[in-house]
């Protein structure tokens, strides 16, 4: 299969008049049609720099980027725009423009100097509007949409370019949680429905790990780890990438939690959601929840009727988790 995007010994970074400062070197990447790639890493490590270099918004320091088989340096702006659509973090401020006309702007690389809209342009625009589920928004004014709707429309505009590759730099940055999940879900659907490759940088790590086909993980020290999310998790790279902070990565749940456990160990008896929520309360209050019965640990029973703690030579119980949390906080002040 031909790669939609391929890099050869790429180095990205900044150049001033005399110096070149690379944030990432010897990068050999390939993105295939139908793949959703999530780019992960802490802030300021160079995710945007890499994406901007892949999109030719800044030059590579060394090495090359190939898009659909041709070197980025050898193609014109128009040719590039026909292969590559871009969605950026920046909020677009445009007064008074309908969604359809905004999506129509994506036809720029396909239309002539005078921008005469042809039938094939119209077809592409309507298709793009449908693809991002913005049919009901088509006549609305773009500036009056919600942030999530706006990003969907901006993706629709990029799709109207009929690209083989879509690059998105933190498109979920301003969105609320449901919109984030929807947006990543939309990108995933797009890669499934057509041979489109998508590279997206995001801070929604857990969402990315659940959704991406491939993750590119920026490691401290300028290394880029790539692979299926599960392989990256198994190799322990995620824990390493974000280590040294007050959080710990839990591979089983593929999620981060605050480092806790300073209050000793605790065991939860019970099953189902109640048991898991009781464990969540214990963790929040600083207990390390274990499976084994600890000698001097706290034992919490989670039942249909509520919770019961049988330690400290006393027995306490309550109906809801608020009272459990209050009890645990009370123990902290007592001890």
């Amino acid at each position: 299969m031909t790669a939609a995007l391929r890099t050869r010994d790429l180095a990205v970074g900044y150049r001033t008049r005399r110096t070149r400062r690379a944030v990432l070197e010897h990068v050999n990447l390939a993105v295939h049609p139908g793949e959703l790639v999530c780019l992960l890493g802490p802030n300021g490590i160079g995710k945007s720099t890499l994406l901007r270099t892949l999109a030719r918004m800044q030059p590579a320091l060394w090495g090359s980027v190939h898009l659909g088989g041709s070197d980025l340096r050898s193609i014109t702006n128009i040719e590039l725009a026909r292969c590559l659509g871009v969605v950026l973090t920046e909020r677009v401020a445009v007064e008074a423009l309908s969604v359809r006309r905004l999506v129509e702007l994506g036809r720029y690389p396909h239309s002539g100097w005078f921008r005469r809209i042809t039938d094939s342009d119209r077809t592409a625009v309507e298709w793009a509007i449908d693809a991002v589920g913005a049919r009901h928004l088509a006549e609305r004014d773009f500036s009056r949409l919600s942030d999530g709707e706006r990003q969907r429309v901006m993706i629709g505009r990029a799709l109207a370019q009929e690209p083989v590759l879509l690059i998105l730099d933190e498109p979920t940055a301003f969105l609320d949680v449901p919109s984030r999940v929807e947006l990543i879900g939309l990108l995933r659907r797009l890669t499934r429905e057509r041979p489109l490759a998508v590279v997206v940088s995001t801070h929604d790590l857990e969402l990315a790990l659940r959704t991406a086909d491939v993750v590119w993980l920026f490691m401290p020290g300028g290394e880029l780890v790539t692979g299926a999310p599960e392989d990256v998790v198994l190799a322990g790279n995620l824990a390493r990438a974000f280590e040294g902070r007050q959080i710990r990565f839990h591979p089983e749940e593929r999620s981060f939690r605050l480092v806790t456990g300073d209050r000793g160990e605790a065991v939860v008896h019970g099953a189902g959601l109640r048991a898991r929520l009781a464990a969540a309360v214990l963790e929040r209050e600083g207990y390390a929840v274990t499976n084994a019965t600890a000698a001097d640990g706290l034992v919490v029973h989670a039942r249909e009727t509520g919770w019961r703690v049988t330690n400290d030579h006393t027995e306490r119980s309550g109906a809801d988790f608020a009272s459990l949390a209050a009890f645990l906080r009370g123990r902290r002040t007592a001890s």
Partner: peptide, 13 residues
């Protein structure tokens, strides 16, 4: 209309 970055990404010199 969408700013210079977007204009460039859509093929404008």
């Amino acid at each position: 209309l969408l700013g210079e970055s977007y204009a460039r990404s859509m093929g404008l010199a």
